[in-house]
């Protein structure tokens, strides 16, 4: 089983991403959506969370949510991959199931 975890809360306000990183297994993927995308910015105080996950998991960020927040041109943490909505759908089919960290 490989799981796609989605996180939709800012790491500066909620612990959803931290909880997800602590409890997702190697081989899983984390997709940052909505306010979750703030975690993907390089140089952020919470960047360590995403970097820790990248050691043995993939981390994706939903581009339309970055754009909506004026962050399209910001540098992302190295290793984080951008996806559009089609890419999001592809991910949900590539992984066995989706778990939302709310």
């Amino acid at each position: 089983m490989a799981i796609l975890h989605t996180v939709n809360k800012s790491p500066y306000e909620k612990t959803s991403l931290e909880s997800c990183v602590q409890r997702s297994d190697a081989g899983a993927a984390i997709l940052l959506i909505e306010d979750g995308v703030y975690a993907a910015l390089a140089g952020g105080a919470k960047a360590e969370l995403v970097k820790a996950a990248l050691a043995d998991r993939k981390v994706f960020v939903l581009e339309p949510d970055l754009k909506a927040r004026g962050l399209a041109d910001q540098a992302l943490i190295e290793g984080v991959e951008s996806v559009d909505f089609d890419g999001f759908v592809d991910l949900t089919t590539q992984y066995d199931q989706v778990n939302a960290w709310l």
Binding site: M1, A2, I3, D25, Q97, W101, L102
Partner: peptide
């Protein structure tokens, strides 16, 4: 433990988060 939680999550067919 937290490590066991990781494994447990992977064993499920359906996860519902609240």
């Amino acid at each position: 433990s937290r490590d066991e939680v990781k494994k447990l999550i992977e064993e499920q067919d359906v996860l519902l988060s609240f």
